[in-house]
Amino acid sequence: MTPSSTTTTPARFLLLGDSHAGPIGRAAKQAGIAFHGGPIGAGREFTAEFFDVRGADLVFRKPEADRYYRLFLDELGISGLGGLTVPLVSTLGFSAHFVATRENWQIYRARGAFPPGFLGSGQFDDVVRAMTRGALDFYRLAHELGLRVLAVMPPQRVPEHSDPEVFSAAQDTIREALLGIGTEIVDLRARCTDGTGFQRPELCEANDTIHGNLAFGRMILADLLARGL
């Protein structure tokens, strides 16, 4: 994994994310949009507790993630997240396919099916919020520091080991939790899916079951720019 920053002109945003941030960074580079940041780890590393608070900053517990993060801060000329003066764009917490791993949800099924209403229930929301508590704390901290924060919803792709019903419901739970915190949500589902409800093939990374491609990254970038970034 390598950083994705551009450095020729003042950055318009800081990008912090998992591998889903890659297409966003590539699209910005291709378009000549200045930013700093990029992927700092795999999505599964950013669900439960993954950072510690240090004053107006945070320290990622995984050394590699923290190393990339410090590099991005240095490029921006700041020593901590609290010094950020441009918007924060993040994909952290939205790798819903990890939350939707089938084995996690077998206990809630009866004869192969979820009880009626379960996926829209408070119990389901509580479980998902508990599983993504670290990500939710990350966004809370960013808002406490007074940052403008935009979270990008994931490609609508569900690998074999994940439950499509849970994936769909879980990302809605995460979305609502982040909206409650005050996060802006980049939600392109109506534009990136076909009649199946899943990602259109031309927006999927080839030979890959999870990620969006550069064309999808361009769609996200266009949405960010339309929001004034």
Results as ranks from 00 to 15, higher is better:
E103D: 15
E205A: 10
D194K: 08
P115D: 11
I24Y: 00
E103H: 10
T85A: 08
T173A: 12
L145W: 06
R12G: 03
M219Q: 14
V166K: 03
L188M: 11
E202Y: 07
Y108F: 15
V128Y: 01
T8C: 08
G120E: 14
Y69S: 00
T8H: 13
Y68V: 00
P63L: 12
A42C: 05
R54H: 08
G117N: 09
T7P: 01
E75H: 00
V128T: 04
G117D: 06
T101D: 12
R111W: 03
I185M: 10
T85P: 00
D223V: 13
G117K: 06
K62W: 09
R70F: 01
E160F: 12
D57A: 06
P87K: 07
T196C: 08
A65Q: 04
D52Q: 11
R109S: 06
L92I: 14
G197V: 08
L136R: 06
P154F: 04
L229I: 14
F51E: 01
L214Q: 08
F60G: 00
R54W: 05
S95C: 05
A100T: 05
P201V: 13
W105I: 15
P159H: 13
M219E: 14
R111A: 13
I174V: 14
I210N: 07
L214R: 05
G134L: 14
T101G: 08
A48Q: 12
L136F: 08
R67L: 11
W105N: 06
V149G: 06
F124E: 04
P116D: 15
H211K: 10
P39G: 06
V149D: 04
E144D: 15
V86Q: 00
P164L: 14
F35I: 00
M219D: 11
G146L: 03
A28R: 00
P39L: 05
M1I: 04
G122P: 04
V86M: 01
A48F: 05
T85Q: 05
F72H: 02
T173S: 15
E144Q: 15
G122S: 11
P116Q: 15
E49F: 02
G182C: 05
G117Q: 07
S168L: 15
P63A: 11
E64L: 14
V59M: 09
S121A: 13
T193L: 09
R218L: 09
G83N: 03
R148G: 04
Q106W: 12
T9E: 15
R12A: 02
I181W: 01
P23C: 07
R140C: 06
T209N: 12
T173I: 12
E184W: 02
L225C: 08
A142D: 05
W105L: 12
H143I: 15
F46K: 02
R175P: 02
F46C: 07
Q171H: 05
R70W: 03
D74C: 00
R54T: 11
V127H: 02
